[in-house]
Simulated scan of single mutants.
Amino acid sequence: MDALRLLQFEEYGAIAQFTRADAPGVSCDSFASLNLGLHVGDDPEAVRKNRRIAADIVGLSETRIVYAEQVHGARVAIVHAKDAGRGAYDTKDAIQGVDGLVTSARGLGLAILAADCTPVLLYDPYAGVIGAAHAGWKGTAQGVVMATIEEMKKLGAHPEDMLIALGPAIRGCCYEVDRPVTDALTAMYRNLKTQESLPFRASERTPGRTMVDLPTLVRLQAETAGVPHEQVVDTSVCTHCMPGFFSHRKQRAKAGRHAGFIAIRPRRLSLRGRLR
């Protein structure tokens, strides 16, 4: 299996997949083998070849995919057909200063890189709008997923019609953080309209530190923004303790990047009924 396919998205006319680190690629050593990060110290030409391979895996052309700079913030950009290929071969050409991308252009792919942070894919099949977001702890504390949903609404999307997928990420079993991180995430959580408990627990390994389930906080943000609980798809993969994915916490500077890709198929499909 070279990627995690989101069949729920495909049923409604989208291409939506999360790649695996161990899919056949050309990178070596700790970057083996399908590293898609141009900024991590891997051979740039190997990464470009890997991106072409990844595009083939998901069924897109690399010249039709848009990449974000990803700065651990909450800014989101609306992109258009003219942006096709930005960031595919050079990080300087990516959409600068953003951690989320949104479009209504059919056949235009959005890419989000990750290696512990939560890659998030979003789709309103009735409005024909997609989004992709990079939710690390800083972006989550700033509400990057809610910001992505707000930008999608500008293109006519409705949260109650959205499908959202949470990709491979470090989970509460492995994500141990210090007080500044928990304080920032707690402040964000208090603004959410939820009765669910804060997904924290005391670390059994390090006194004074906390285990955090970041994807759960991302889900709660989406639900607060109006996405029904049953329309949130969680891959339930922990990048730190499960094989097949890159983990910055485990590999440090030698960690590559896997990615989430999403696009609306060029041919409009006939949709019947609502999602719920």
Results as ranks from 00 to 15, higher is better:
residue 234 D to P: 15
residue 78 I to F: 15
residue 238 C to A: 10
residue 273 G to P: 14
residue 238 C to P: 13
residue 35 N to A: 02
residue 230 E to C: 13
residue 136 G to K: 03
residue 109 G to A: 01
residue 85 G to F: 06
residue 119 P to K: 01
residue 89 Y to V: 02
residue 135 A to Q: 07
residue 252 R to W: 08
residue 262 I to F: 12
residue 234 D to E: 15
residue 209 R to F: 09
residue 200 F to W: 10
residue 210 T to C: 06
residue 140 T to L: 04
residue 13 G to H: 05
residue 245 F to N: 10
residue 117 C to R: 12
residue 101 L to E: 07
residue 35 N to C: 10
residue 274 R to N: 09
residue 213 D to Y: 15
residue 13 G to D: 01
residue 18 F to N: 06
residue 194 T to C: 03
residue 92 K to C: 12
residue 215 P to L: 11
residue 233 V to G: 08
residue 49 K to F: 08
residue 237 V to Y: 12
residue 17 Q to S: 00
residue 72 H to L: 10
residue 263 A to P: 13
residue 102 V to G: 01
residue 225 A to L: 14
residue 116 D to H: 09
residue 4 L to W: 14
residue 112 I to C: 15
residue 44 P to H: 00
residue 68 A to N: 06
residue 208 G to L: 01
residue 41 G to P: 15
residue 6 L to Q: 05
residue 149 I to M: 07
residue 30 S to H: 11
residue 145 V to Q: 01
residue 242 M to D: 12
residue 140 T to H: 10
residue 261 F to D: 12
residue 181 V to A: 08
residue 266 P to G: 04
residue 59 G to I: 00
residue 190 R to F: 09
residue 73 G to C: 05
residue 200 F to I: 02
residue 84 A to N: 08
residue 123 Y to T: 00
residue 161 D to E: 11
residue 276 R to L: 07
residue 157 A to T: 03
residue 255 A to L: 06
residue 252 R to M: 05
residue 73 G to L: 01
residue 87 G to V: 00
residue 123 Y to L: 14
residue 173 C to D: 15
residue 163 L to V: 07
residue 239 T to G: 15
residue 78 I to T: 15
residue 176 E to F: 13
residue 29 D to I: 02
residue 54 A to H: 12
residue 56 D to Y: 01
residue 177 V to D: 01
residue 64 R to N: 10
residue 5 R to F: 14
residue 32 A to K: 14
residue 151 E to N: 05
residue 223 E to W: 12
residue 205 R to M: 08
residue 88 A to L: 05
residue 245 F to P: 11
residue 234 D to W: 15
residue 255 A to K: 02
residue 169 A to I: 00
residue 260 G to I: 05
residue 115 A to N: 09
residue 99 D to F: 08
residue 163 L to K: 03
residue 64 R to D: 11
residue 64 R to Q: 14
residue 268 R to Y: 10
residue 222 A to Y: 08
residue 179 R to F: 09
residue 183 D to M: 00
residue 141 A to Y: 08
residue 81 A to C: 07
residue 220 L to I: 10
residue 272 R to C: 14
residue 198 L to Q: 09
residue 10 E to D: 12
residue 37 G to S: 06
residue 198 L to C: 07
residue 215 P to E: 11
residue 103 T to R: 11
residue 21 A to V: 03
residue 121 L to M: 15
residue 24 P to M: 04
residue 213 D to E: 14
residue 137 W to F: 14
residue 31 F to D: 01
residue 162 M to A: 06
residue 192 L to P: 14
residue 263 A to L: 08
residue 170 I to F: 13
residue 32 A to L: 12
residue 79 V to G: 05
residue 127 A to M: 06
residue 165 A to M: 03
residue 124 D to P: 13
